[in-house]
Design a protein around this nucleic acid. Structure first.
Lengths: 114, 114
DNA sequence: TATAATCGTTCAAATTATTAAACCATTAAT
DNA sequence: ATTAATGGTTTAATAATTTGAACGATTATA
């Protein structure tokens, strides 16, 4: 019946999988909020984030790498200093929003079928 | 400055944490899609899901328990048979959508500040 | 009542994720 | 050129998650 719609859902879930995993971690949530709160938009350094997350430098570095891999964070290098900032997050957010919309649609249709 | 808005974000992230973790797992995604696809709305049994997920019965049972704990799945018992179905998922989805909206809003405001 | 069917629970093993210590590379400053 | 500062990488340990085997509880059926 609605196999095409379900296939779309399946693909949609796959597509946002890493984004969901990245967003589900408490420490990464703290990092994301800190980056959102960086109104000066200079970017934050690893050291800035060790305090906020109460994590070691390598651990912060690791989480930033994950956020970079899913494409919502980017780096700007200034000498030996690395400034991390949110980049392209809107695109990932929209993918997830579209998926949630599709899921809601399927659920609404199911209700109407009864 | 916008500390109240950031506090709201922080709370929002916390609130959807378990939902995000639950949704990030591939096997649980398969289960959710299967439940969405259950147009008859009779609910699906553990056995039905072992085939789809290629998981053992206890593993499926475990994932269903997680989905039940975050409040998007419920059980109906019929004799010895347990039928699982989506329940209250819209509520969790809306929480997540609201958070995504808030994040987008903060990002848009940041752009305007420049 | 005895047997079969269904599914949850417990437990231990395997896998994966997270973390920090130690190390390396690069850049800046002296 | 040395030295200091910054931060990424590797490695090893720890923690968490995922998994299936074995078992237990409940319900249906003979």
């Amino acid at each position: 019946m609605k196999t095409d719609k379900m296939e779309k859902l399946k693909y949609g879930f796959e597509e946002v999988k890493d984004f969901l995993i990245a967003l589900g971690d408490e420490k990464r949530q703290i990092i994301i909020i800190a980056l959102l709160n960086d109104h000066a938009c200079k970017g934050l350094r690893v050291i800035d984030l060790t305090d906020l997350t109460e994590l070691s430098r390598p651990a912060v570095s690791h989480h930033l790498k994950i956020l970079k891999q899913i494409g919502i964070v980017d780096i700007r290098r200034e000498g030996t200093k690395n400034y991390y900032y949110l980049s392209n997050a809107a695109s990932e957010i929209n993918k997830l929003r579209n998926l949630l919309d599709d899921v809601m649609e399927v659920m609404t249709e199911k209700k109407e079928e009864l």
